[in-house]
Design a protein around this nucleic acid. Structure first.
Lengths: 134, 134
DNA sequence: CGGACTAACTACGTTACGTAGTAGAAACTA
DNA sequence: TAGTTTCTACTACGTAACGTAGTTAGTCCG
């Protein structure tokens, strides 16, 4: 029973590579054949391996698929950014609120200037949305 | 070859429980016996299981230990907050800078008011440090 | 010395995952 | 229509991580 990307399933290396391929075509769908073609350019890999991986990803809810004729068209269930965000949030949520502050401090300590800038911008954006009149 | 908590090793369930126990005594060290006593209060678990888990955690660099007499005293190599932060940062780092903004936006979108407040506070604190004169 | 306690080593079952072969259905093609 | 191609579904096998714990062998205390 697929439960969607809300539960942060751990991905293996190949699974991640396949997700990358799907993400590279964010707005389209890909057949197994198409994914295999892309991967085969870089590595020696069997068609059925790609098939199996996509099937497993679908069962985990990481990818969505729909029938087109006799074959399936796959696409990522969540964008890379969404998945990253969900994973970060999940990580943060498993500390209680006392440690959360400390965790966030450490997080920012280790972040680069660019990352902090992006975060500040995102924070401002969220604020603007919450408070459009100010 | 232990490489410290810098490489975010995935923890199993029991491994995490053991880490929790160590974190609960943040400033002290615990023997295998002590950890086992705590765990045994809640579940049926063999002493040697705890021993094995602590040994594996030590090999991963997740815990540090030192000889005291014939036995070992264990403590967490990183606080829970540090580990959480490292994991979040690691997650964030595997998107390129283009997606990072988007990821952070999604992250904040899903965050609670309290979490956003904590983050804002942490950001201000980091800023204050970087710019003590302003 | 003998029991008690500790750590090292070994082991077994499960699950995830990389990897891929084979079977069978469907479609294309000569 | 029969052969070939192309998909999917099912099955399989090896490895690694991990939960779990027994066995073995020192060491210390009385």
């Amino acid at each position: 029973m697929p439960d969607g990307p809300s539960s942060p399933t751990r991905l293996g290396d190949l699974e991640r590579v396949v997700m990358e391929t799907l993400w590279a075509h964010e707005r389209g769908t890909l057949t197994v054949r198409a994914v295999h073609n892309e991967l085969a350019a870089d590595r020696d890999i069997a068609y059925t391996t790609v098939l199996t991986v996509l099937d497993r990803l679908a069962k985990k809810g990481m990818v969505l698929r729909e029938r087109v004729g006799r074959s399936w068209e796959y696409r990522a269930a969540a964008s890379r950014a969404e998945l990253t965000a969900a994973s970060m949030r999940h990580t943060m949520e498993d500390v209680d609120s006392g440690d959360r502050r400390a965790a966030l401090m450490h997080f920012l300590d280790g972040a680069s200037t660019d990352e902090v800038a992006d975060l500040r911008a995102a924070l401002a954006e969220v604020e603007r949305r919450a408070n459009p009149d100010a």
